[in-house]
Structure formats: C-alpha cells, structure tokens
Amino acid sequence: MKFAVVAFPGSSCDDYLYVLKEVLKQEAASISHRDTSLQDAQCVILPGGSSYGDYLRPGALASLSPIMDKVREFAKEGGLVLGIGNGFQILLETGLLPGAMLPNSSLRFVCRQQTLKVENANTPFTGCYAQGQIIQMPIAHGQGNYYLDPASLKKLQENNQIVFRYTDEAGNATEEANPNGSVDNIAGIINQGGNVLGMMPHPERSCEAALGSTGGLGLFQSAIEFLAERVKA
C-alpha cells in the first residue's frame, strides 16, 4: 500500500481515498486508529474532520490512539506523514510538530477559498510547486490559530520549516489575509527532518477544477514523485 489514511472516530477519510484512488490512480486504503500496524504504507495521512468531536482539545484524544505509537516510529524512521486540518492538530498534540492551536481569533468557524504562498518548495510534499508560488485551497476550521512561543518561532523561521503562509494574491502575508490569527500567517509547517508536514488548508478538496480550485493537486503529486524517486534510490 502506498498511502494509508488513518480513520479516527469523526475523520473524513473518504475525501482522501477518493482523490488518491479515483483522481490520482494511487494505491490507498484506510486503517483504523485501533490498528497497531501501518502495514507497508509509504505515506501516512492523518485526515481532517473532528476526531472525537474535538473534545478536550482538537486532536488531543486521537493523539493517544494505539496507531499513533506506530506513526511516531514511522516518522522517526523518515516515513512521510501528512496531517491536514484536524490531522495537523493531531501532529501538534503528539509533539511530532511544534506549537499548538487556539480558537480562531474571530471566534468564528471559517470556510472559504484561501490564498496561500508556497514558502518552501524543497520538501517531499511541495517539490512540484515553484518557490513562492501563489495557490488557492479551501480552509474550513474553528481552531486554526497556530501558536508558538517567540523563541521557537524564530527557530522555525531559521530552519525554513514554514511551508505555507496565508497571503493576499500578491503574496503579502498581511493581517487581512490571515483568516484565523495564526502567528506569522502560518498555514503549514514541516518538522526538522523534513518528512512530517502539517497544514490547516485542505489540498484534498482542491484537486478538481469543479470544486473551485486545484492548488492542492501539486501537494499529492509531489509526494507521489518523491516516493517514486525513493523507491528507485
């Protein structure tokens, strides 16, 4: 299996399986949060949705699922892990990525097409984008207000770990372009090892023109190409 999508109670796995299998013709399957094996997955996706009803904190209870021990090991060995929306929140709660999520500064659920800038095109998930490319993807969340203390943020910036920022169409990370109050307009980050990406925007809802944007297609294509190269190497 190439892509494993982890199904937590409340996750929306079907969107991912549809895109991976039907649109991108990839081998993909869902695995249960109770499983204790990732089988032979080459890339693990922690999907969006509200796992466990967002009780306690978004992602908190999912991060304690049996499968997450395996995801941690997989990530330590360099395996590709992609967390989207709630999946990003789960990665923060497990400590695989730094920081935490607060309620949106507006206190409103935001659901709209969002302009993003690709700040780091040199990752397994962004190789098909140009550095600085402006793309569109939908966002849909109530707690996407990314927070990190100033010292850790500086490290993130210096290590080039910010992968996507919320910007206007000219690529300016302004306050108006920031939909949720995230520090430094951060929409997506990668770990220091460069194999674990978390992001609030939804690339899986952005792979077919009929859905309003195709900005997410490059993300999956990048991962597919990266895995193909890795197999060759």
Binding site: L56, A60, L64, L92, E93, P98, G99, A100, L102, Y147
Partner: peptide, 9 residues
Amino acid sequence: RKVLINPVL
C-alpha cells in the same frame, strides 16, 4: 500532564 493539558498552552 499526559492527557488533560497541552503544555504549549
């Protein structure tokens, strides 16, 4: 420490 709080926040 393990469950109820997020030490970042």
